[in-house]
């Protein structure tokens, strides 16, 4: 499969990364080189092989459902690029 300008535009949009002419040109070149490299996997016989998403063999650990005091709002809001006392502030989303 080949990555075209339209593909780069589409995946940039999906990734929420602003795109422009120069970016698209560079990415077409780089992403096609990477895809060509990973296409080696087509040589591997994978019939009846179960996919492996994680090497962890234990069952997910459950914990007691207790209320703990952590992640205080005022501490967390300190890092937001634009804040008031109680909320995150973003550009206006309704007219």
């Amino acid at each position: 499969m080949t990555i075209t300008k339209d593909t780069v535009k589409k995946i940039s949009k999906l990734s929420r990364i602003a795109s422009n002419e120069k970016f698209e040109e560079n990415m077409i070149k780089d992403l096609n080189a990477i895809l060509k490299f990973v296409d080696q996997l087509n040589e591997v016989k994978i019939e009846n092989i179960e996919p492996l998403a994680s090497t962890v063999e234990q069952e997910l650990i459950k914990r007691d459902d207790e209320v703990k005091k952590m992640n205080e709002k005022k501490d967390i809001l300190i890092n937001s690029p634009e804040e008031n006392d109680d909320f995150y502030v973003v550009p206006k989303v309704i007219e």
């Binding site: 999906l14 990415m27 994978i46």
Partner: peptide, 25 residues
């Protein structure tokens, strides 16, 4: 971008799932 592409509809099986099977091997 590569990650978004291999997870996107139509390419998931051809790339991501295949890679996970190779990971098993």
């Amino acid at each position: 971008l590569i990650g978004t592409y291999v997870l996107s509809s139509g390419y998931y099986d051809a790339y991501y799932l295949k890679a996970q099977k190779v990971r098993r091997l």
